[in-house]
Simulated assay, not measured.
Amino acid sequence: MTIEIIVGLPHLSEGSIIAQARALQQTALISANGLSRWSERRGWREWAGWRLRQLQNARGLAALCLDSAGFVAAARYGGFPWSLADYVALAAAYPFRWWASADYCVEGEIARDREEVLDRLSRTIRANRDCRRLAEDHDIVDTLMPVIQGRQPVDYERCIEALWESLTPGSLIGVGSMCRRDIHGPDGLIAVIDHLDQILPAGVRLHAFGVKGSALPFLLPFQHRIASIDSQAYGVSARQAARRAGVSKSDHFVAVHMARWVSAQHAQLASRPLRLPHHRPADPAPTPSEPWEAAISQARAEIRDLIESGDLDHDEMTAPWVEQWAADIYREQLGG
């Protein structure tokens, strides 16, 4: 088995970038954000649907996959500007090799504390279930790729437990919050992959989103588990090179960097496998001992359970509501 290199595309507009992807015959990945239309008709920028005609330009690619743009949605818009129904309709508009479930990333700039990480894990679990339900309506369940999230290796295990029934030999799972993660350390990329390798059933494979090329030699011992990685890192290197050279970052300039990047990734795959020592998983956070903080923690846990079960929507967790919920718990603990 070998790890497949998937090329992230910024858009599907006809031109040098997609022509290079066709010439390289690499599987490509497009984000839902890259297919979005925007309007300022009402005086502000708002999402206005999909650029479905651009999907016709994917003809000639080796294959095309679809990502929900979870990180971009959180970082730029504070959440998904489209509904899950909108997203699944996009997934049904083209024969994607696979399309990723919507997910709620937990990078440090998005989830700033442990409680917010746990909140977003629950939202990810619920979004996976809702995407599967909607996929059944469109008859595209076979191409749905569940996505798991986490900050610590054990966080991903929580997502897997919730989605266990859908995991069978041959299943592909997307692993999120990878692109900004260190390679080393107890919460590093390799620690996450190693943990998943130990707990997943045989035959279940992984797609690691946004993995750095420098990590590839460390991933080689896990080729039996990792099916593919994707990246759009060539776009970053093109921007830096254009700035140094004092030239425009044209699509042609970016396409040249894409070809170099793909060649470099394949060279990394042919390199000597590297191994890191095993790390002991981080200890779980202690339960708060102060009564009010304990009530807040319990309130969040109860709301998460309701989000995962579908009794509350993904985003129905606001600070005032958590505090009101916690106040009821706190009064009960004090005997009314």
Results as ranks from 00 to 15, higher is better:
E4R: 11
P10Q: 03
L12Q: 01
E14Q: 13
G15E: 07
A21C: 01
R22M: 10
Q26K: 13
N33Y: 13
R41M: 07
R41N: 10
R42C: 03
W50V: 01
L52M: 02
R53I: 09
N57M: 05
A58W: 04
A58P: 00
A58D: 04
A58V: 03
G60P: 03
R76F: 14
G78L: 05
P81Y: 01
W82L: 01
S83F: 00
Y87R: 05
V88F: 06
A91I: 08
A91V: 06
A91F: 09
A91P: 00
A92K: 05
F96H: 01
R97K: 13
W99K: 04
D103G: 07
G108W: 11
R112C: 12
V117P: 02
I125N: 03
A127G: 05
R133I: 01
I140E: 04
T143K: 13
P146A: 06
G150M: 01
Q152L: 14
Y156I: 00
R158L: 07
A162I: 06
S171Q: 00
L172G: 02
R181M: 06
R181K: 13
H184Y: 12
D187C: 14
I193Y: 09
L206M: 08
F209L: 02
S214P: 00
F218Q: 01
D230L: 02
Q240A: 15
A242N: 08
S248C: 13
S250W: 07
S250C: 11
A259Y: 10
Q265M: 15
Q265H: 13
L269H: 06
L269E: 10
L276F: 00
H278F: 08
P284Q: 09
T287G: 12
E293I: 10
A295T: 03
Q298L: 15
E302D: 13
E302C: 04
L306E: 13
I307Y: 05
E308W: 06
S309L: 10
L312K: 09
H314R: 15
Q324H: 15
W325I: 07
E332H: 14
Q333S: 12
